[in-house]
Amino acid sequence: MDSLVVLVLCLSCLLLLSLWRQSSGRGKLPPGPTPLPVIGNILQIGIKDISKSLTNLSKVYGPVFTLYFGLKPIVVLHGYEAVKEALIDLGEEFSGRGIFPLAERANRGFGIVFSNGKKWKEIRRFSLMTLRNFGMGKRSIEDRVQEEARCLVEELRKTKASPCDPTFILGCAPCNVICSIIFHKRFDYKDQQFLNLMEKLNENIKILSSPWIQICNNFSPIIDYFPGTHNKLLKNVAFMKSYILEKVKEHQESMDMNNPQDFIDCFLMKMEKEKHNQPSEFTIESLENTAVDLFGAGTETTSTTLRYALLLLLKHPEVTAKVQEEIERVIGRNRSPCMQDRSHMPYTDAVVHEVQRYIDLLPTSLPHAVTCDIKFRNYLIPKGTTILISLTSVLHDNKEFPNPEMFDPHHFLDEGGNFKKSKYFMPFSAGKRICVGEALAGMELFLFLTSILQNFNLKSLVDPKNLDTTPVVNGFASVPPFYQLCFIPV
């Protein structure tokens, strides 16, 4: 009986604490739906499609509103004006990374994606500088992407125009580009180590996009005490870190300090320079996690976009025909596509942009946080508050993009057929937390897609009208449904 009384008292205290925290903070924060004790607004949000729920709530509470995930307040920004004001106009104040408990377990605050403060700034600055020195957006990395595009075309030829699921092959190409940047090595598509790495990356994007992960991140005790797919994700990350550590040891034994070959060499050189400046942010643990982040951000996002792009091109054969006509006119058949071609191919450029806009790969991006107490639109948001960005509300804005739910390359073309930029184009987020590999991803999408369409016609196994382009999961990332196609050599 005594234990029951204690339990009831504990629960009562928890409920009172929950109510007090919510009521004391709500006077400062933007308005929002009334949260339930302990669980907050979790029942009012469709976990399978958070973005749709945010759109519905914005119609009631406006472009800036507050939700509670458990006891934790989260300020939501919906629509271009609110997102721009926060991420661009007040970029420094909104540059923090929001709480992501599962990532905390995986990387302990290291790396480039989930770190904060001085650690994040130094690692991000170093990573950007190193990638630029190796030619991100310049010639040397373009050579690597072109080489991988040629290998991709050869792998597709091996399908002999038979029906195939493109998931694996389209994942190999961007993964190999990242391998060449980090390890100075590309792998054969049949290499077992490479296959294991690909498998872990593919599993992780599916797990991260599941409703279960949303629950884990908002009720963090689940991570330590409950079984579930989150444990598989943590094991996959541990596998990748151990693999990278092996490569780091190989580099330490063979590195030429006067001739760095890749990202690992550059990081080890930085560690050597910083060894007298303790404590340094440049450690082996930081290198492991930064490399894992580059793999995660640079492989599955690009391969998922490529997979979605081919599905949309199957669905819209008239678009595919126009792209192939432009390829034939500008590039021809006797040389590989290059980035200089893009400025002469406005329709193809528009298609690449429209694919990214339409699929809305990361509907709410990753959570941000404010780095200080900030007054925002007459609300006071306390330091450390998590900020949720609705990228969907920007990419699918119906004023900027008429009929935003329709796939239409003319969203990025003017009346004369010239490519038209849009400030609403934010597939990689915006501001200080914009994806480090934005330029690389854009290069890969253009070169891989043009190389495929230069060499193959795409054949659907069903009537294009019957192809479903609805994402199968739409949590962290929008993942396309399973499909097969035939690559018919031109």
Rank of each mutant, 00 (worst) to 15 (best):
I169C: 02
F183K: 01
A149R: 01
A321W: 09
G70C: 07
K206V: 05
F194V: 03
E288L: 15
L54W: 05
T229C: 14
I264S: 02
E104H: 10
N398L: 08
K158D: 06
N277T: 12
S209H: 11
E246S: 10
S478C: 14
I434R: 15
S58M: 05
S254N: 14
P33N: 02
M339N: 09
E246I: 04
T320N: 08
D262F: 01
F263G: 03
L11M: 14
C172L: 06
G437Q: 03
P363I: 01
R150I: 08
C175S: 04
E250Q: 09
D468M: 12
K421L: 09
R21P: 13
M255I: 14
F168A: 06
K119A: 13
M271P: 05
M406S: 14
R186E: 01
R21Y: 14
K28N: 13
K465R: 11
C164H: 05
D349Y: 15
P471R: 06
F134M: 14
D262M: 02
N277A: 10
G46Y: 09
P481I: 01
N277V: 11
Y483K: 00
K273Y: 08
Q192I: 09
K72V: 04
I331F: 03
V248D: 02
A477H: 07
R144I: 15
Y358N: 03
Q278T: 13
D262V: 01
C486Y: 06
D373G: 04
P382D: 04
S478T: 12
I327N: 02
E285V: 04
L458W: 02
E288T: 15
C338H: 08
V330S: 09
F476D: 01
T305C: 04
S343T: 14
Q252D: 05
Q146T: 09
N196P: 04
E328M: 15
D468E: 10
G70S: 03
I244V: 14
R132H: 12
D408N: 10
V319P: 03
Q192N: 09
D463G: 05
I123Q: 15
K432M: 06
P337I: 09
P409R: 00
S254D: 12
E288S: 15
E148M: 00
V479Q: 15
R26Q: 11
G137A: 09
P427C: 08
I50G: 08
S254L: 10
S429L: 05
V60K: 15
E148L: 00
T305D: 02
G27T: 12
C179S: 04
K52N: 13
I223L: 14
N56T: 13
I169M: 06
Y347V: 04
C172Y: 04
F65P: 00
P63T: 09
A161I: 02
K420T: 06
T66G: 02
Q44P: 05
T34L: 11
K200S: 07
I207H: 06
N133R: 08
P227G: 09
V113D: 01
M443I: 14
F456T: 01
V76D: 01
L362G: 03
A173Q: 00
S393P: 04
T302N: 03
T167G: 07
E199C: 08
T469M: 11
V355P: 01
M255T: 09
S18V: 15
R307T: 03
E438Y: 11
S220A: 11
N107H: 13
S51L: 11
V5F: 14
E415P: 09
I42G: 07
E253S: 12
E203Y: 05
P31L: 06
N378T: 07
T469W: 04
E415I: 06
D191H: 03
F263S: 03
P227N: 10
D463V: 04
L362S: 12
F419S: 06
H78Y: 11
Q214R: 12
S53G: 12
Q44K: 11
R433T: 00
L54F: 13
F100R: 06
I374P: 02
L311F: 05
E274A: 09
Y308R: 01
R307A: 03
K241Q: 03
G109N: 10
R307M: 00
E288H: 05
K59V: 09
I45R: 02
D143E: 15
S422I: 06
D224Y: 13
R335G: 07
I452A: 00
R26I: 11
P489A: 03
Q252T: 08
N217W: 14
E300M: 15
T386P: 09
G442D: 15
R125Y: 05
F476P: 05
C13E: 10
E199S: 11
Y347D: 00
I213E: 13
V370R: 00
F219A: 09
C266E: 09
T348F: 04
F263C: 10
N277C: 11
L391M: 13
G416V: 14
